[in-house]
Every structure is written in structure tokens, then in C-alpha cells.
Design a protein around this nucleic acid. Sequence first.
DNA 1: AAATTAATTGACAGTTTTACTCAGGTATGA
DNA 2: TCATACCTGAGTAAAACTGTCAATTAATTT
Lengths: 143, 143
Amino acid sequence: MRLSTKAQYAVRAMVSLHLHGTGAPVSLRDIAVREEISLQYLEQLFSKLRRGGIVDSVRGTGGGYVLARTATDIRVDEIIDSVEETLVPVSCMDDSGRCSCSEQCVTHNVWQGLAEGIRGYLASYTLDDLTRQAQTKWSGPSA
Amino acid sequence: MRLSTKAQYAVRAMVSLHLHGTGAPVSLRDIAVREEISLQYLEQLFSKLRRGGIVDSVRGTGGGYVLARTATDIRVDEIIDSVEETLVPVSCMDDSGRCSCSEQCVTHNVWQGLAEGIRGYLASYTLDDLTRQAQTKWSGPSA
DNA sequence: AAATTAATTGACAGTTTTACTCAGGTATGA
DNA sequence: TCATACCTGAGTAAAACTGTCAATTAATTT
């Protein structure tokens, strides 16, 4: 059960954007160099992050990307959602826990609980938490 | 981030084995029919479950598989481990949380926390819990 | 206005993983 | 010795992943 590199890169890139941003737009070239991610792959990711309402884009010279909201208001699960990676561990279940097989399926409860736990944990982390680094473990950043 | 069908089938098959077992070995054919999983795919899975110490095999006529331990002593995470699906969400990290990039990697803590949470949650479920069905959500079977 | 920077888009391709099937072989009980 | 059922390794089609390439649009600087 692996997160795709797409999701991992997206989170890393967002941290990089927040960490080295001064308010002025940060170009993908900068992030690409700093994080050693291909510029063209980043373009794909940020296109989705923009559509997801996580970042805003500024075109032209001196352009780049800026956060669409404050870092304390951007949750890690939202970043992953934006690049279209599911956080639900089984394919028969949707985000809300609905499942075609929920009646007859004895394993339904484990997967639903797992899905909620993963979602809840990643939702407890904000972009700002990540940059501040002082996190505890499973209980999330607040504990 | 999806669990493979391999892991899902393994858990379902184990529940089926426990639920319909009377102490006597249960043949894979029975499980295959009941769970609508290909017999030959099941053979692959149970070969791994046996090596993982989850089940014991009985060969010959009237043979099949039996639990290697009591159902209260078989955890869901062990079942998944046996069929060789990782529960660690990022490839740079091993089961113990060690990571080549832990120093420079700002996202390390989230992934480690997530890994521990997933592991901890699935470890809180036993095969017996699953068959008894009366589970609560994220807090696991004990709450 | 022209040149430059940088976001934006869609198509495409190589590689890896997944989810199986197939074809045998081995051990046991009736 | 025959039927049952476990056991093993190889092979394969499809899907997903991880990017690259090419071309365009928009804004800024000169």
C-alpha cells in the first residue's frame, strides 16, 4: 500500500514553495532545482494543485505559484486529493464509506475504519505544521 | 493508495476459513466457491500464508488448511504481511521507520506517523474480531 | 513592438506492478 | 492405485505509474 510519488512530490513541492516563498511567486524551475524533480513533471502536478484550489498561478516574467490560502489552512489530505490519489484503501468503497458490498462483506468495517483513520490523520496536518517540523507521531501534530 | 486485491482476498479468505471451519481442514476449493476467488490464485496466497505461520496445511484426501493459531491471536496486519504487501506508504522508508533521507526530508514525520497509524490500527484487529463483526470505527475493535 | 519568461495543455511512451492463468509435481487417504 | 488436495514456478495481458515532448498562451521587460 504505497502512496504514489506523485502524491509525495506534491507534498514536498508544496513545503518547498511555502518554505522559500517570500510572498512573491516561486517559479517551478526553482522548485525543480531545489527538490530535484523534473520541471515537466512538476508542471503536471501544479496544474492539478491549481485546479484543486491549493495554489494560484502568476504568468509571465517573475511569475510562478503562490499559496491560494494561508499555510495553516492547507491540509495535507487536500494536497493529495488534488493530485488525484485516493486515500481509500479498497476500490469497492468511496470517500464517504459507501460500498456496494457493505451488507455481505465481513471485512467492510476494517477497511472503512482504516480509510477514516488515514484521512483523519492526514487532515490533522497542515502545510504549516510540516514546515515547522515539530511533529509527534500517530496522534498528529496537535498532540 | 490502495491495498492490493491480494491483501484483500487474503483477509477475506481467512475470515471464510475461520467462519466455516469446524476444526477439520477446509479445502481451498470450498473457499474458492464461497468467496468467488480463483482456486489457483488462492493456492498462491495460502502458500504464503503458510510460510508466514498463519495457517497449517493438511495434504491428501480430506485435507485443506487450518489456522496455525487461535483466531484471537491472528492479527490482520500479520495476514497482510504474509502475502507480502507493505504497509509503509513510502518506498524510502522501511518497517521500522528508518529512512535514507530522514535528515533532510521535511515530510519524513508525516509518513512515519502515517505508517505507524496504519500498522497500529490493523494490528488492533484480530481474525476473531472480524468474524464477530461488532466493530467500532477508527478506534479499533477494542473500543 | 519584439523578445523573454513562465505558466498551460494534451498526447505519448517506457517501465513496473498487478492479477491472474497454466502446467506440471508431490503427498495422503480410501 | 486412484482420487483428492496441496505445492511450485513460469508466463502473460492489462493497468498504472512515471515521466517526456511539443506546442501554446499570457505577461513582463527591453
